[in-house]
Amino acid sequence: MSARKLELVCPAGTPAAFRAAIDAGAHTVYCGFNDETNARNFPGLNFSRDELGASIAHAHKKGAHTLVAINTFPRAGAVGFWHKAVDDAARLGADAVILADIGLLDYASKKHPNLRLHLSVQAAAANSDAIAFYARAFGVKRVVLPRVLTVQEIAAINRDIEIETEVFIFGGLCVMAEGRCSLSSYATGKSPNMNGACSPASHVEYREEDGELVSRLGGFAIHRVGASEPAPYPTLCKGCFEAGDYKGHVFEDPSSLDAAALIPQLAEAGVTALKIEGRQRSRSYTESVVRNFRKAVDDYAAGRPVVAGALRDLTEGQTTTAGSYRKTWR
């Protein structure tokens, strides 16, 4: 017996990773411009206008789609920079843009009525009323759901809305109400939601001290790990701190999402597309993860069992979790 085929939405931080994603079986690739209009604004990463145009053409030739993430919030006085990103994505033939800001959604819907709009996870639309508003007001066709919902809640949302839903299936996790993180801003003066980089590399320092790897962000020591322990990303939300009598990961464990085992339940909950996180990762990561999940999606569609848990070595903390989909934590 065959089941509904899910769309696999895959990350690309460079043109080489983009090609690797397509070759590995991505139905759709998402990427961003090399500036602060996208939420993975890291040095050496992302696409020039020419690179994006060539990549979109390559995707279309291979029968795949390209989504352009313009999902940070425009700075006051610099809105035109974000408008231009939307205009350029439309001109270059993007199949959709992923937006979060209400003003930018309004601009895109009026200026480019034929451009498909997806609502970014950064918009944190986590209930059917909020999602229906975006659909009604701007013609949004798909919402990327925040990583705070259970499978049952996702099913309830899908029963109430008329647009597509996309959920994260693999990669880094973020514990904050998405799109509203102030931790990185506090430590570095740079906002992940405005400047596009959580824990900007310019403020990160690693140093070996007394046999431990010490990570600092904006001068704050946030981790000390021994020689045999896995190293985490230098993000405050996954830092190890002392609070009262407690010492540990106060906000969130350095663990990554792997919901491969939940693919059947997510499909039954009405989800249209599965998203892999990791535009900041290498083409090796992209190739491995996309190939693995394409097989999982195909196996599910063909009624075969889905094999999960093969990608642990690629993940932060080298441990994985089903995240909010199976809410078991305190």
Binding site: P15, P43, S202, V204, Y206, S228, P230
Partner: peptide, 23 residues
């Protein structure tokens, strides 16, 4: 993550080099 690679100093420069070479 697995500690097979160690980086020190200017993290921004390391990321830029890593991403540029990877592409």
């Amino acid at each position: 993550f697995s500690r097979d690679l160690v980086i020190e100093g200017d993290t921004e420069a390391v990321l830029a080099l890593r991403n540029a070479i990877d592409n």
